[in-house]
Simulated scan of single mutants.
Amino acid sequence: MTHSVPTVRPVDLRVEPVNQVLDRVERSLQVRLDSTSVVRKRRSVGAWTDRDTWVRVERRSLNKIGDQGWNGTESAALLEGLAQPAWLGCVVWRDTDGPVMWRADETEVLPGAPVGTAVLSADPVLPEEWWRAFNSSLDALSRNTTRRVATPDTVMITQHLVTESIRGTFSDEIDTSVERWVPAHADLNWANMSAPVFSLFDWEDWGNAPQGLDAATLWAASLAVPALADRVRRERRGDFESRDGKLMTLFACSKILGPDAYPEDPRIEPARHMARQVIAELQAD
Rank of each mutant, 00 (worst) to 15 (best):
T2Q: 15
V8N: 03
V8E: 07
P10Y: 11
R14S: 09
V15C: 11
V15T: 15
E16V: 13
R24F: 09
V25Y: 07
E26Y: 05
R27N: 12
L29S: 04
Q30S: 14
V31M: 03
R32N: 08
L33F: 02
L33S: 07
D34G: 06
S35Q: 14
S35G: 07
V38H: 03
R42F: 06
R43G: 08
S44R: 07
V45I: 12
T49K: 01
D50Y: 00
D50F: 06
R51E: 03
D52C: 05
T53Q: 09
V55A: 02
E58Y: 01
R59K: 01
R60C: 05
S61V: 02
K64L: 15
I65C: 10
G72V: 01
T73S: 10
S75V: 06
E80R: 14
L82A: 05
Q84D: 00
A86T: 13
W87G: 01
V91H: 11
W93R: 08
R94T: 13
D95P: 02
D95A: 12
D97M: 14
G98M: 10
M101F: 15
E106F: 02
E108K: 01
E108M: 06
E108S: 12
V119M: 13
L120N: 04
D123R: 00
P124D: 02
P124R: 03
V125S: 11
L126P: 04
W131C: 07
R132L: 10
N135I: 12
L141G: 03
S142E: 15
N144S: 09
T146Y: 07
T146A: 10
T146M: 09
V149S: 10
V155C: 03
T158N: 13
L161Q: 10
T163R: 13
E164F: 05
I166T: 04
I166N: 06
R167H: 14
G168D: 14
D172E: 15
E173K: 11
D175R: 00
S177G: 04
E179K: 08
W181K: 09
V182W: 07
P183N: 10
P183M: 09
A184H: 11
D187E: 11
L188K: 03
N189Q: 10
W190M: 08
W190Y: 11
M193H: 04
S194G: 09
S194R: 07
V197F: 14
F198I: 06
S199E: 07
L200H: 08
F201S: 04
F201N: 01
F201L: 06
F201P: 00
D202W: 04
W203D: 02
W206F: 11
G207T: 04
G207V: 02
N208P: 00
A209Q: 08
A209C: 04
A224M: 06
V225T: 10
V225P: 02
A227Y: 00
L228D: 09
A229W: 06
R234G: 13
R236L: 15
R237Q: 10
G238L: 05
D239Y: 10
D239T: 02
S242K: 00
D244P: 07
D244G: 06
K255E: 14
I256F: 03
E264H: 13
E264G: 15
R267A: 14
I268Y: 05
H273I: 15
H273C: 14
H273N: 15
I279M: 12
D285Y: 00
